[in-house]
Simulated scan of single mutants.
Amino acid sequence: MADLFASDDLSAADGQADTAPLADRLRPRTLADVVGQEHLTGPDGAIGRMVAAGRLSSIILWGPPGTGKTTTARLLADAVGMRFAPISAVFSGVADLKKLFASAKDHARRGEKTLLFVDEIHRFNRAQQDGFLPFVEDGTVTLVGATTENPSFELNAALLSRAQVLILRRLDAAALEQLLDRAEALTGRPVPIDAAAREALVASADGDGRFLLNQVETLYSIDLPEPLDAAGL
C-alpha cells in the first residue's frame, strides 16, 4: 500500500484525471514539498545530507501509517537519479524478489542504479530478509524498507547492521493544516466545515495525512447546504 503523505503538491500530476482520488492528486513532486518530516528531509537531516552528497545508503523508514514512507522513498530515488523498484512484502514472495534482483543486475550493467523499496518489510520472514544481504552488499540494489513496526524487534540484526533506521513522525497539527490548505488550493473550494470542525478534523486524523485527505474528499462529495460544525462532523 502506498504511503502518500508526509507531504503533497499544489498541482495534480501531469495528465492525471480530476476524478483520481484527492490523495493521489496531491502527491508531492519533490522532497522539498514534503511536510512534517523536515528533521529528515531538511539540509541537516539524514535524507537531506544524502541528497546533497548524491549518494544513498540503505535505510529503513520507520513510522506510523500516513506519514509518507513510500512517497519519501520514491522522491529520494528521483533526487539521486536512481531507478525506483517498489515491492510489497504483503503481496510478494521469493519469486518476485528474484525477478527484481535479476532486473536490477541488468540495469546495473547499463550503469543504472536501483533503489529497491520494500513496503511492510517486517512481513518478510527472517530467511527472506537474509536473502537481501548479498544484493545489498554487492551494490546490486540500495534497499529502502518501510515499516510501521519497531525494526529492532522485527528485522534481522544482519539486515539492520547494513541499514540506517530513520524515524518518521506523526504529522503535527501544522502539517495537517498545510494538507488542508493545499487541498483547498487544488480544488478551488474551502473544506465545507467551520473553524471548530476543522480543528476537530485535524485532531481526529491523529497524525495520518492519508486519513485526513480521505475525510476531506468525503466532505467534498456531500452536497451540504452550509458548512458542518464540530457536532455534525
Rank of each mutant, 00 (worst) to 15 (best):
M1V: 15
D3K: 00
L4M: 09
F5L: 13
F5C: 10
D9I: 06
S11R: 14
D14Q: 12
T19N: 05
T19D: 15
A20T: 10
D24K: 09
L26E: 08
P28W: 00
P28R: 02
R29M: 04
R29Q: 12
A32T: 15
D33I: 14
V35L: 10
G36V: 03
Q37M: 08
L40T: 01
G42T: 07
G42S: 11
G45N: 04
G45Y: 10
G45L: 12
R49D: 08
R49L: 14
V51K: 08
G54I: 12
R55K: 13
S58C: 03
I59G: 04
L61D: 14
L61R: 01
G63C: 06
G66I: 05
K69A: 01
T70F: 07
L75Y: 11
L76R: 00
A77S: 08
D78C: 03
D78P: 08
A79C: 04
M82T: 04
F84I: 01
F84K: 02
S92W: 00
K99N: 06
L100T: 12
S103T: 15
A104L: 07
K105I: 06
H107A: 09
K113G: 06
K113P: 05
T114N: 04
L115V: 14
L116S: 07
D119M: 12
D119K: 10
F124D: 03
A127E: 15
Q128H: 04
Q128V: 02
D130I: 14
D130H: 14
G131P: 10
G131Q: 06
G131H: 08
F135T: 10
V141P: 11
L143R: 04
L143Y: 02
A146I: 10
E149N: 10
E149K: 14
P151L: 01
S152V: 13
E154K: 05
L155A: 02
L155S: 01
A157Y: 07
A158C: 08
L159F: 08
R162E: 05
A163N: 06
V165M: 06
V165R: 05
I167T: 12
L168H: 13
R170I: 04
A173Q: 12
A173G: 06
A174N: 07
L176F: 05
L176W: 05
E177F: 01
Q178G: 05
R182I: 07
A183T: 11
A185Q: 15
A185T: 15
L186H: 09
G188I: 14
G188F: 13
P190T: 10
V191W: 09
V191C: 03
V191I: 14
P192Y: 01
P192F: 03
I193K: 00
I193H: 01
I193N: 01
A196C: 03
A197L: 11
A200W: 03
V202H: 04
A203I: 00
S204G: 09
G207V: 02
R210Q: 03
F211R: 14
N214K: 12
L219F: 10
I222V: 15
D223T: 14
P227M: 04
P227Q: 00
